[in-house]
Design a protein around this nucleic acid. Structure first.
Lengths: 269, 269
DNA sequence: CGGGGATTTGACACATATCAAGAGCGGTGG
DNA sequence: CCACCGCTCTTGATATGTGTCAAATCCCCG
C-alpha cells in the first residue's frame, strides 16, 4: 500500500500523483488557468468518489458533458471569494483546498478542508453568491461544473440529480458533525476526531490510513477546530508523548488507531 | 403588528395560530397522527417561505401532488430518530422542533431549531437514514414530503428541483454560520447572535421582531450554542442588566436591537 | 397546596487563551 | 555552500472565560 510518505520527499510532486499521470511542470503562468479537459469522468480514477459516483454505462458517458473546463491553481490562489456571484461548482481533481468564512468584524474561520473528489461551492446555490472563499493549500486542479449545466443534464439523467442530492446531503451531515465537535468536544478530542477523519478520507483515496502529510498549518487546523494554534500544538505533543501518533512537522504517523479513537471519547465516562 | 406576546397568554394556543385557522382541540389520540391534507400548498400562507417558494401558477397547482399527508405531533414526540430509514422530508406547518445529534459516547447536541415553513430531514438523503432525531418542542404539525415523489415531480418541474437545491444550499450556509459561531464567538456573542437570528425568522413569518416566546429551555439553547445552561442564564441576565433585552422566563423583549448587535461583535475590536 | 422541573445566582475549578521567548525549517541571496 | 531571514511550530507562565457544584427561587401543573 502506497503511503503519502513516499511522495512527501519531493515537494513538487502532486498530492494525488496517480490521478495526474506523469508529473507536469507547474507554475507555468502562460498555460495555467483554464484548459480543455484532457480526461473524461468515465476514465477519471476519482469517479467512484466524485459526483458521477453510482452512474453506469450510458449515464457515465453523458456525464462528460458536465465538465468542459479544468482549472489549475497555484498554492495560495483563491478559487472563489465570498461575495463572488455563483455560477459553478468545483470538483477537486488534485491538490487540497480550504474554505474560509469571515464575520463582519473580521474574525474568520476555516469551515472545511477539501481533497480530491470532493465538491466545493454548494453554499452558493441558494444565495446565488458564495458565502465563503476557497483557497488552494497546494498547487491544485479543479473540474469546473457549471451549475446550469448540472441542472439541465439532470433533467434527463435522474440518477445524476439523485447523486447530486446525496452529495449535498452528505455535506449537511458532515457539517453537523463538525458542529457536534465544536459544541461538545474538548481540545484533544477535537484533534483526534480531525486526524481520524483525515485518515479515513485518505484511505478512501487509496492512501495510507496511518501515515500522511498535513497540508495545512497548525493555525488553520486550530481555526477549523475552534482552537488556538498553541492548543493544537500542545495536543499534538500530548498524543506523541502518549505514543498514539508521531509528529514531525507536517508529517503524521498514527501509531495506535484504537488509542486515538479513545482520545476522541470523553475521559472517565 | 401582531406580537407573539398575545398568544403566550394561553399556553394551549398554537404558536402559529393564524396558519391553523380556528384552534382545533389537540391531544385527541384517536385522530391525531396521519391525516388527509385539508389545505393545499397554493393556499397555504407559508408558501412564500416553504419549498414551493418561487413557483407560479401551473407549477404551484402541480406541487400539491407533493404532499398528501400531514402529521400531528404532540410536544415531546419524535418525528424521526437517528437511525430511522429515510423516506420523507418534513415541512413544519405549525409548531416548533429541535433536531438532536448524538455521539457514540452519549454526548448530544441540538443541531437546529425549526419553525413554520422550514424543511427537516435533508440529512437523511445521502446516507439513506436519518443522522439525527427531530423532536417537537410544542404541539406541532408537519407536511410529509415523500422524497421519491419530490424526485419524480421535479423531473418535469425544473423550478421545483431548483428550489429544492436552494433549500438544501441554505441549510449548508446556515450550518456554516453556526460553525462560525461555535468556533469563534464568546458566550454573550453567541446568545446575541441566536436571539437576532430567531427575531429575524419570526419577522419573516409576520411576527414581532422584538417580542417573542422561546420554545426551548435554557439547556436546549446551551446545547445548541455549545454552552452550559448556567452560562446561558448568566448571559440573559447580563443583557437584561445592560438594558438591551428584557427577560421573563421564556418571554423575551428586545429593547435595543443595535445594542444586541453590538453584543454580537467582539469587544474592543 | 404540594412537588418537580426550570431558572437564577454564587463560589470555585479547570481548560484554553494569551503573551512571550526560543527553536526548527525552508528558501533566498551573497 | 553558507548565512540570514521569515515563517511555523513548540513550550512555558499566566490570565480569563466558562464549566462545575451547590443552593435558593420561581413557576407550572396536578
Amino acid at each position: 500500500m502506497k503511503t503519502e510518505n513516499a511522495m512527501a520527499a519531493t515537494a513538487s510532486l502532486r498530492a494525488l500523483e496517480p490521478v495526474q499521470g506523469p508529473a507536469i511542470p507547474l507554475g507555468n503562468a502562460a498555460r495555467k488557468n483554464i484548459a480543455k479537459v484532457p480526461t473524461k469522468c468515465s476514465s477519471c480514477n476519482l469517479r467512484e468518489l466524485c459526483l458521477p459516483c453510482g452512474l453506469t454505462g450510458l449515464d457515465m458517458d453523458r456525464v462528460e458533458e458536465l465538465i468542459y473546463t479544468r482549472k489549475r491553481m497555484e498554492r495560495g490562489e483563491n478559487l472563489y471569494r465570498a461575495g463572488d456571484t455563483f455560477n459553478s461548482l468545483y470538483a477537486v481533481r488534485s491538490g487540497f483546498f480550504k474554505t474560509v468564512q469571515t464575520l463582519e468584524d473580521g474574525r474568520d474561520q476555516v469551515t472545511g478542508f477539501h481533497m480530491a473528489g470532493e465538491i466545493m461551492g454548494m453554499d452558493g446555490i441558494g444565495p446565488e453568491e458564495h458565502g465563503n472563499s476557497a483557497v488552494a493549500l497546494e498547487d491544485s486542479e479543479v473540474c469546473v461544473i457549471p451549475y446550469s449545466r448540472l441542472e439541465s443534464l439532470g433533467r434527463d439523467m435522474h440518477l445524476l440529480h439523485r447523486q447530486f442530492h446525496k452529495v449535498m446531503s452528505r455535506e449537511i451531515v458532515q457539517e453537523q458533525s463538525v458542529m457536534l465537535l465544536l459544541g461538545t468536544m474538548r481540545a484533544e478530542e477535537r484533534l483526534a476526531a480531525f486526524l481520524l477523519n483525515l485518515s479515513q478520507r485518505f484511505t478512501a483515496r487509496g492512501y495510507s490510513a496511518s501515515e500522511f502529510n498535513l497540508r495545512m498549518t497548525r493555525e488553520e487546523i486550530g481555526s477549523y477546530l475552534g482552537l488556538k494554534l498553541e492548543t493544537v500544538s500542545r495536543a499534538f505533543s500530548k498524543f506523541q508523548e502518549d505514543g498514539v501518533i508521531s509528529v514531525h512537522q507536517k508529517h503524521i504517523c498514527i501509531l495506535d488507531v484504537g488509542g486515538l479513537k479513545r482520545c476522541m471519547t470523553r475521559k472517565g465516562n
